[in-house]
Amino acid sequence: MQQRITEQGTSYRGLLDDARREPSRHLLSDGQNGIEEIAFLLGFQDTSSFYRAFRAWEGLTPAEW
């Protein structure tokens, strides 16, 4: 599997980021879940990890977005 991912010019981390980015926007927009719960639902180890990833994606923290 790793070989196929590499052949496609991406990485496991890149695929995981792609799978988390859009759902994070949606979950933040609907306002039904807190940031801690969103981080959990998306499989982040902790809220800090979610904040770092979201800032890398959007240039803002989840709370600012």
Rank of each mutant, 00 (worst) to 15 (best):
P23C: 05
D17W: 00
G34A: 13
Y12N: 13
F50L: 09
L15N: 12
R21A: 11
W57L: 06
L27E: 11
R4Y: 07
D46Q: 02
E58V: 07
W57Q: 09
I35E: 08
S49M: 07
G59F: 02
L41Y: 06
L28M: 06
E36L: 11
D46A: 05
D46W: 01
T61H: 04
Y51A: 11
T10S: 15
F40T: 09
Q3R: 12
A19C: 09
L41C: 08
I38E: 03
L60Q: 12
F44K: 03
Q8S: 08
F44W: 13
G14S: 12
L15A: 12
R52P: 03
T61E: 03
R52N: 02
A63C: 01
Q8D: 06
R21H: 11
E36D: 13
R21V: 10
H26F: 10
F44T: 07
E22W: 11
Q45S: 13
F54N: 03
I35A: 03
A56N: 07
L28Y: 00
G34T: 11
I38S: 01
I35L: 04
N33H: 15
S11H: 07
R25N: 13
Y51G: 12
D17Y: 02
A56T: 04
R13D: 15
M1G: 15
D30P: 04
G43R: 07
Q8E: 13
R13K: 15
G59W: 00
D46L: 00
Y51I: 03
L42H: 05
R21K: 14
T10A: 12
R4H: 07
Q8I: 08
E58H: 04
A53T: 02
R20P: 06
D17F: 03
L42P: 04
Q2C: 09
L27V: 09
A53N: 09
T6G: 05
G31P: 08
E58R: 05
L60N: 07
S48M: 08
E64C: 05
R21L: 10
T10W: 03
F44R: 06
D18K: 09
D18L: 10
R13N: 13
A63R: 13
T6A: 11
M1E: 10
P62W: 01
Q45C: 07
L60W: 04
G9Q: 09
S24R: 10
M1T: 11
F44A: 01
G59P: 00
Q45E: 10
I38M: 00
I5S: 14
T6L: 15
E37H: 15
G43S: 07
R21D: 13
F50Q: 02
I35V: 12
G14A: 14
S11I: 06
E37I: 12
T6E: 14
E7Q: 15
L41W: 01
G34R: 02
Q3P: 09
A56Y: 01
A56I: 08
F50K: 05
S29M: 14
E58I: 04
R13F: 07
D30T: 06
T6Y: 13
W57I: 08
I38H: 10
